[in-house]
Design a protein around this nucleic acid. Structure first.
Length: 933
RNA sequence: GCCCCGAUGGCGGAAUUGGUAGACGCGCCAGACUCAAAAUCUGGUAUUCGCAAGGAUGUGCAGGUUCGAUUCCUGUUCGGGGCACCA
């Protein structure tokens, strides 16, 4: 009876499936635990060995929690809308729904292969109309809501309308447009369009304008991803930034709460830090600089936001973002051409480029001046790409003596620099440190930064030229895409005014049955006219009796912002999830996913959760109580060395003797570093008669760690690994590679050690000739000590998600039990349970061999008993001056004085003390002894 | 450029709270079994000096704090992730 993993795993997979072992109920006496994986985007390439890393970790945790007596929700689904499927459709004409379905089937097969305990009856797919019906419904809730700052929560827009009708908006200032002011009389006189426009400035889902990458040649809007080196990835056509009407989510209204409630979350500190930085709260002042000449239109002032109001007397010039609405109005006729040329240049630049290029300074003078609010001096106004339209007010006051970029700008354009830091400013470099006093600054001179900031703000307020202001880097989230493969908006236009389709003007007999707005079939995925999405091409879909449909679709994060709620009640057709279900499962207890989502997806989910909470749909306002990141598994690429100009390949060790270039070769026919020459010859027709220069009769490849990707030929498919070693080995090996949160390269060779371990463990239970060899003998203290030490270690490790060291402990345990020749049920039955979360198939097999008839998942995790692991003496390392010299054993309850006497009396210690007098005797109980001389 | 993370033997990593650096596995070396090979088993394996006993050095680099630093602090180099329309 040998370890036949193929048979064992196939058997139990079938059993689990046939008996719905992993089906989870919303009714249970057990405490609940919700363990969630970030659901994958089902790409055409299938899963590689890097993807399941987090899934294995969460599966171990979920199984462990089940064995510990919890009712565990552990679901899986698919983030099925997205750009790649649409790209593929454009290239091949295949409908994204078809390719997505195919990809999901492949993913499902690959996932099943690994033996996860997902409750697949709860699967969700974001592209399923039954699912996106509720994504659309939530969008409508956001559209019909506004943020009430007095109550600090979202409320139905109907309440806002009631307020406007009674008192206008004087008590409800508009965050979308601060200049918007009206009283009740004016509100009631507003036309329908004016009313809707005003409300739009308040809605949590609203329309505004945003810059997109526009590609004239392709007639379409491109994603950042599709723009490479300033041209379109497809075709290499020129692209430029273009302002387009877009949907947004007013996430900025939640900035403060998103920031504050981070403190309640059990996330890693770096991750919270990243979210804090993304939200980017800063305190400062908003300062008005009046223009010296009134512009032809618009306001006669430029408003800037600064975090350093203390430096106000150091302002030597101002910089507007080139997109700033005032630029055209204030530019003098002489500067018009230069400004227009510069603006054209900036249109070709991405925000990333604009922020990261510091060496090359660019900009252009507008010819206009503004008056300094405190000194009344004329300040020249420039435009430059380093000022972004979306941050702050899109304009800055430049203080070259205190800011690096301002300094470089002033130097480059020869603008005179005012020194407000005395000798701390050298004239060579800006003084950007936040210590010291402000000088040469009128009434601020001699004050610290904090004092000067306060004083400056007070003065600006008195002068009516500024106010204290909290600013956020966070921007409202762009929520529309000019694409086909996404959720259609439940929105129609009547007289160019957008309405939710649940409003009476669209459906006067509104009911939930009007949702979802299904994605219609298209014949072509080509963009619509004027940068619109493909849906705009479907004339008879767009035009309805009630109005014109919105032709944009929602972005990828729409469906993923709330999917964790749908798993709780996936078949509900009248609600996104019943309140009973969400009240039972509540927050996700543990969420595992990739680092790359640390900001975007997590921030959006948090906002949606807060909005749903505010509107009374759920009872909690944070989605993920604990969050863990998994690192990437990198590929290990193999190289061959081809002699230039010849079809001849040199083994790695000899390549220096030839003129060669390296080529990537498929890792799957390289064993370690030794290449299978026959497989290589068959790989490509032109290699069929290649020649090889070998070392020691072998062809040795070069190796390098890179991202795992098809184009690098270093992709390893989990199916192949599972076929060769089994799912249990694969699961344990992935965990054994290292901590889940760090990136590490995949090495197929190393898996054999884990496989050997499982075979070795199996031999404790069964012998090839004799079969089942477990006996009923009473375990010895040694055996019990090993077992309980292991149980303890596994519990500790699983609770802190350190699965790599768990695997080591199992290895140590099996090595020691093998050495003792232990085949006792009293030891081996608990061991089989302990390893169940890691290697569920072999555990299930052993469990049934022990005579049990129900699944091992219904059993109980073995209890750790301290009495078996307690020791009463300890071998202390004894160090002299911090260097460990010898070991001495003492009882654990020994007194310090006794130990000191014994140690100082030891002849070896005396030798190392070299006759020097004792300075200090350090004894750390249970740890070590240090003799300081 | 900005934000976050990481760096320990030939390789993946361990050292959980500042207390014996290198657990466990891979690879490699030697041995057992075998006609041979595979599989399996046993032993060795940071570097360096030494026949050995034993000593010295050692956690990217340069400093600092401490009786004691892989662990804390400052600076620095290199690598990875994110930067708002890839998911």
């Amino acid at each position: 009876m040998e370890y036949n993993f193929k048979e064992i795993e196939a058997n139990w997979k079938k059993y689990w499936n046939d008996n719905h072992v992993y089906k989870v109920s919303n009714e249970s006496d057990r405490p609940k635990c919700y363990v969630l994986d970030m659901f994958p985007y089902p790409s055409g390439a299938g899963l590689h060995v890097g993807h399941p890393l987090g899934y294995i970790a969460s599966d171990i945790y979920a199984r462990y929690k089940r064995l510990k007596g919890f009712n565990v929700l552990h679901p899986m689904g698919f983030d099925a809308f997205g750009l790649p499927a649409e790209q593929y459709a454009i290239e091949t004409g295949q409908h994204p729904a078809v390719t997505t379905e195919k990809n999901i089937a492949r993913y499902r097969e690959q996932l099943d292969n690994i033996g996860f305990c997902y409750d697949w009856s709860r699967e969700v797919r974001t592209s399923d109309p039954k699912y996106y019906k509720w994504t659309q419904w939530i969008f409508l809730q956001l559209f019909h809501s506004w943020y009430d700052h007095r109550a600090d929560k979202a409320k139905p827009i109907s309440e806002l309308i009631a307020i406007f009708e009674k008192e206008g908006n004087k008590n409800m200032p508009c965050t979308g447009d601060e200049t918007l002011l009206f009283d009740a009389v004016r509100w009631n006189d507003f036309s329908e369009k004016e009313k809707r426009d005003a409300l739009m400035q308040y809605r949590l889902a609203y329309q505004g304008y945003a810059q997109v990458w526009w590609c004239e040649a392709l007639g379409t809007v491109l994603a950042n991803d599709e723009v490479v080196n300033g041209v379109s990835e497809r075709g290499g056509h020129p692209v430029e930034r273009k302002n387009m009407r877009q949907w947004f989510l007013r996430i900025t209204e939640y900035a403060e709460r998103l920031l504050a409630s981070l403190d309640t979350l059990d996330w890693t500190e770096p991750m919270k830090e990243m979210q804090r930085n993304w939200i980017g709260r800063s305190i400062g002042a908003e300062v008005r600089f009046n223009l010296t000449l009134a512009p032809s239109k618009g306001e006669g002032a430029i408003t800037v936001f600064t975090t350093r109001p203390d430096t106000i007397f150091g302002v030597d010039f101002m910089v507007l973002a080139p997109e700033h609405e005032l630029v055209d109005d204030i530019t003098t006729p002489e500067q018009k051409e230069a400004i227009n040329n510069y603006k054209t240049y900036v249109k070709s630049r991405s925000e990333r480029e604009r922020m990261s290029e510091v060496k090359q300074v660019t900009g252009c003078f507008t010819g206009a001046y503004a008056r300094h609010p405190l000194t009344n001096k004329d300040i020249p106004i420039w435009i430059s790409e380093y000022v972004l339209a979306g941050y702050g007010t899109g304009a800055i006051m430049a203080v070259p003596s205190g800011d690096d970029r301002d300094h470089a700008f002033a130097k480059h354009f020869g603008i005179p620099i005012t020194n407000i830091f005395d000798d701390k400013y050298t004239g060579e470099e800006a003084y950007s440190a936040k210590t010291g006093t402000i000088e040469n600054s009128d009434f601020l001179s001699g004050m610290s930064i904090a004092e000067a900031s306060e004083a400056a703000i007070n003065e600006l307020v008195d002068e009516g030229a500024g106010k204290r202001k909290v600013n956020y880097k966070l921007r409202d989230a762009g929520f529309s895409r000019q694409r086909y493969w996404g959720e259609p908006f439940p929105v129609m236009y009547v007289d160019d005014i957008p309405y939710g389709i649940d409003e009476p003007i669209i459906h006067n007999d509104w009911h939930l049955g009007n949702l979802p707005v299904e994605l219609p079939h298209v014949d072509s995925y080509r963009p619509g006219p004027e940068g619109q999405g493909p849906l705009a091409n479907i004339e008879d879909w767009v035009t309805t009796e009630a109005g014109q449909r919105e032709t944009n679709t929602m972005p990828g994060y729409a469906g993923s912002s709330w999917y964790f709620l749908r798993y709780m009640d996936p078949y509900n057709d009248t609600e996104f999830a019943s309140r009973k279900a969400t009240d039972y499962w509540k927050q996700v207890d543990v969420y595992i996913g990739g680092n790359e989502h640390a900001v975007g997806h997590l921030l959006y989910s948090r906002m949606w959760t807060k909005a749903l909470y505010d509107l009374g749909h759920i009872g909690f306002d944070e989605p993920f109580k604990k969050m863990l990141n998994q690192g990437m598994i990198q590929g290990s690429t193999r190289f061959v060395y081809r002699v230039n100009g010849e079809n001849k390949f040199v083994s790695a060790g000899l390549r220096k003797q030839y003129d060669v270039h390296d080529l990537r070769v498929d890792v799957n026919f390289v064993d370690g570093l030794e290449m299978d020459i026959e497989a290589f010859k068959k790989w490509r027709p032109d290699y069929a008669d290649a020649e090889f220069i070998l070392e020691d009769g072998k062809y040795i490849c070069g190796a390098e760690v890179e991202k795992m990707s098809k184009s690098k030929y270093n992709v390893v498919n989990p199916d192949d690994i599972v076929a060769q070693y089994g799912a249990d080995t694969f699961r344990m090996y992935e965990m054994f590679l290292g901590p889940i949160d760090v990136s590490k390269p995949w090495d197929t060779k190393g898996i054999e050690g884990v496989h050997r371990f499982l075979k070795k463990m199996w031999r404790l239970y069964a012998d090839e000739q004799k079969g089942w060899i477990v006996n009923e003998e009473t375990p010895t203290n040694d055996e019990l000590r090993i077992l309980h030490k292991t149980i303890k270690k596994i519990e500790e490790d699983v609770e802190r998600f350190a699965f790599n060291t768990s695997v080591s402990q199992f290895m140590i345990c099996v090595n020691e039990l093998t050495a003792l020749g232990c085949h006792k049920r009293g030891i081996l039955e608990p061991l089989a349970l302990a390893i169940c979360p890691f290697a569920p198939h072999i555990a299930e097999e052993l469990w049934h061999q022990f005579g049990h008839t129900t699944s091992v998942i219904t059993a109980e995790f073995p209890k750790y008993d301290e009495q078996y692991t307690k020791e009463n003496s300890k071998k202390y390392p004894v160090a002299v001056n911090g260097k460990t010299r010898l070991e001495m054993e003492f009882p654990l309850d020994a007194q310090k004085a006794t130990i000191e006497q014994a140690v100082l009396g030891d002849e070896n210690v005396v030798k190392w003390m070299e006759g020097k007098p004792l300075k200090k005797f350090i004894f750390v109980e249970g740890k070590m002894i240090n003799v300081v001389v």
